[in-house]
Every structure is written in C-alpha cells, then in structure tokens.
C-alpha cells in the first residue's frame, strides 16, 4: 500500500516535471520573451542587457531548474499584457473557478449517479428511454450553446437570473466567495448547470452501461438464485462492482470540469481562471498560459491520485496484489 502510494507519487512528479518542461518551452522559446516585455524603441544594447539580467543566456538545464524552482514557490513571472505578477492574477481568480467547478461537480455526480442507476436497473421503463434520448441530445449540445440558450430563456426573456458575473462576493481571508450571498447563488445557477450538463450525461451513461454489464454477470445471477433481496443485489452487489470504472470516469470528468470552465466562464463572463486563460491565448500572453497549464496539470494529478487511492478502498483484489 505504502509502496504503491510512493510509486504513484513518483509517477505524478514525473508528469508534473514533463508539463513544467512544456510550459518552460512555451515560456522561453515561443516568440521572443524580450520583445514581448519591452517596447519597440528599446535599443539592442538594452535588450542584450535585459537578456543577460533575466538569465536567458545561461545553460538550458540551469534555466529550467530555475523555472521549476520559481514555479514551486508559485512564481510564474509577469503577465505581458496586464503587467502584473501571474500568481497574483491567478490567486484573484481561482476562487471563482473552484466554486463554479465545485457546484457543477455536485450537480453532475448527483444527477449522473441517480439517472445512471435508474436507467441501468429499469432499462425498459419509459422514463429510462426518455432519459437516454435526452442524454444523447445532451451530449450533442455544445456547452456554449447550452449557455446561450439558458441566458436567452432565463436572463433575456424572463429576467429571473443574471446573465453574467458572480453577483455580490464576500472576502474571507483572501478567498472571495459568492456562496454566502443571495445574488451570488443566483449568479452561479446558470453557469453551474451549463458546466454540469455534459458531465452529467457522461457519468449517467457510464453508470448505466456498467450496471447493464454487471447485471449480466454470473455472480449476480447466482445472487438471484440464492434468493437475495432485490435491493441487496442492486445496491450491495451490482452497484459496488460498477464503482471502479465509475470512479475513474467521474474523476476524469471532474478534472475536465476545470478545463471546460474556460467555455462557461467565457459565455457567462465569469471572472475565473478560464476567462483569464482564454484572454491570454488571444493576446499570446505566454506567462499566464504556462502557469495555467501547470496548474491544471496539478489538479489532474491530484484527482488521479485520489482515484487510485479510492480503488484500494473498493477492490480487495488490488489490496492483495500489492501485498504480494
């Protein structure tokens, strides 16, 4: 168990290092960092001096080592466009994104699991067929189209909910939260639904197909042949056996929520990291792009580690493999 965790931590560190390398390449070799930082009128001598001062003439490994060292301290340089430290910009915007992702993840898991169980257990029920057809429409609706649709109905037509922003926010020790005000909750409803919808359908479909497959398994047939109660079979045996693939997919989907929040944040002008990133892409603001890349990779690594650890809780076979 411990050795497995250490092995996984080591692998995660390698992944992070690889991402840092890509990020470093972005930072140093895409375009010319010097001309990105200074104006047209700067002389060649000044440029050379800046180059020397920034350490851009030093050996590659040395530069990379310094980049990683800085990144570990949360230092990703100065935004070209906004002329402010990247870590400050990201720290300002992180709460908005994480709150949005948190609310969406809860929505997606609750509705995905309930819907998946229902459609998996009662596959011939009319409501299951309705849910499955709707879910296919859900997969076919691009996130931004859902957002536009919701804005048009609830903000433009009936004026129930705001179409942009976070509403009133409260500052708690540097973390701005919208979850403590009525206007904040009103503001998060539409973006959270928009962001959650696609992931909900994916979780729903994976749970359904896993349930259908497990229900055909011999041990379920044998459980029925032993006269076990339907509830025990469905939730005790079938559901528990679907958990491993479901945990994997759900974990990945929560990771995707962070990436998909780019779209939702753009549609709803949500002041989070995603909209910061998309502006960075449009204006070629490399420091923000590379910092965002490292950060998202970090979230993914953390989620993957959590998923791996959850396997152990669920599956005795894995515990045995590691022991032996």
């Amino acid at each position: 168990m411990v050795s497995f965790v250490i092995k996984r931590l080591f692998q995660s560190a390698i992944v992070m290092l690889a991402v840092a390398l890509i990020s470093f390449f972005l930072f140093n070799f895409v375009g010319d960092p010097i001309s990105n930082m200074v104006g047209q009128e700067t002389t060649v001598e000044d440029r050379a001096e800046l180059r020397e001062r920034l350490g851009l003439n030093e050996p590659f490994l040395y530069q990379f080592g310094r980049f990683v060292g800085h990144a570990l301290q949360g230092d990703f340089g100065i935004s070209y466009r906004l002329q402010r430290p990247v870590e400050d910009l990201i720290a300002e915007r992180m709460p908005a994104t994480l709150e949005l992702v948190f609310v969406s993840a809860i929505l997606a898991i609750v509705f995905g699991v309930v819907g998946g169980l229902f459609t998996g257990l009662k596959k011939d029920h009319w409501a299951s067929k309705l849910i499955m057809t709707t879910s296919l429409v859900g997969v076919s609706l691009p996130t931004f189209v859902i957002g536009i649709l919701l804005i048009y109905i609830f903000a433009v037509k009936v004026h129930w909910l705001p179409s942009f922003g976070r509403g009133e926010v409260v500052d708690i020790g540097g973390w701005t939260t919208g979850l403590l005000t009525v206007s904040g909750w009103k503001a998060i409803i539409l973006p959270a639904i928009t962001l959650a919808l696609y992931q909900t359908t994916l979780i729903l479909r994976i749970i359904r197909s896993e349930m259908l497959e497990v229900m055909r398994a011999d041990f379920i047939k044998f459980a029925r042949a032993r006269g076990l109660k339907r509830r025990d079979i469905n939730y005790g045996h079938a559901l528990k056996n679907t958990l491993i693939p479901v945990i994997t997919v759900t974990g990945l989907q929560i990771g995707s929520l962070i990436a998909f929040s780019i779209i939702t944040e753009t549609v709803f002008q949500w002041p989070g990291m995603g909209s910061l990133f998309i502006q960075a892409v449009q204006f070629a603001d490399i420091p923000i792009m590379s910092a965002y890349l490292v950060l998202v990779a970090f979230f993914f690594v953390v989620i993957n580690l959590t998923v791996d650890l959850l396997y152990f809780v669920v599956d005795p076979r894995l515990r045995a493999d590691v022991k032996g």
Partner: peptide, 14 residues
Amino acid sequence: GVIFQDPLTSLDPL
C-alpha cells in the same frame, strides 16, 4: 439451492 458452472465468476469478488 442452485450451483452454477463457473465458480470463478459465481462469487462477488468484492
């Protein structure tokens, strides 16, 4: 009481 063919898959692994 019922006994099936494959003991490897008749028991819930978890």
